[in-house]
Amino acid sequence: MAGSMRYRLRVASPTTDHMIKFSAAMRSIQGISDNRSYNYLAGIHGAPSHYCWHHQFSRRSDARAQVFLPWHRAYLHALDLALNDFSDDNVAQPWWDWTTTAGVPEAYGATQIDGRDNPLRRFRMNLELPNGSLRRNTRRRPGRNPFINLPTTTELESAIDDDDWSSFSDRMQGLHDDVHVWVGGDMGSTTAAAYDPIFYAHHAMVDRAWYLWQLKHGINNIPNALLDFVLEPFGVTVRDVLDTRTLGYEYADQVAPAEPVSPVLVG
């Protein structure tokens, strides 16, 4: 139902209802090339626009301008909106629980789904850069680094238990970096990572961790100095993205739709 709350669900088998709807919308935005396209949105994070926020600071903010979590929340929201411009199904992006999945989920690894190329497996980047054009499919090299495994439930829970915003943000960024390095290939480069569709499922998991942290420690639990910080290029502030419900989504385990029926008049 377009316009109602969107519920982000766990990445599941490619044939489940929410994955089918999400994949269809991803296929739609991957098939266009204007400023509503997947290629355009992916270019906001790394090349060519480089808006992503990881270690930067700003003179407009003290508190180290620690906006890694808010910036990426605004970024995922932009993808949600783009997907729903091409779908009537109130599509919500899924989260990849890397603490319980042994590797890349089937929905993101399968070559084909229902006889068609899987839009979640890879994406053909189309970039004009000063040092040449970049036109190729995204690549992954999961599990190649000998020092890193996917984060564990204990590590995630320990971070969520940390009641200090700054420390929690640093720890989540650390776990986030682990996953980027583990997936490898283009996911291991800030420049190209967002062109890989699994980037968004990974960041939805990071965003979900912040959502769970907020439920435990307070939605507005963030330094005041960050509240009016503008998250470029989305035109929203940190304050605007604190409550996921004001952005129209929440994280859920399951949604069981009930079929509408004709009313039975009693009496």
């Binding site: 090349a47 060519p48 000063p130 000998p146 650390g174 970096d177 390095v181 480069s189």
Partner: peptide, 23 residues
């Protein structure tokens, strides 16, 4: 030296920028 070595104290990852894509 691997993560299960008794003297291993912890780990960290760096999400690298890799190459310059600009002028």
């Amino acid at each position: 030296l691997r993560p299960d070595h008794p003297d291993c104290a912890g780990r960290f990852s760096v999400f690298g920028h890799e190459n310059c894509t600009g002028d």
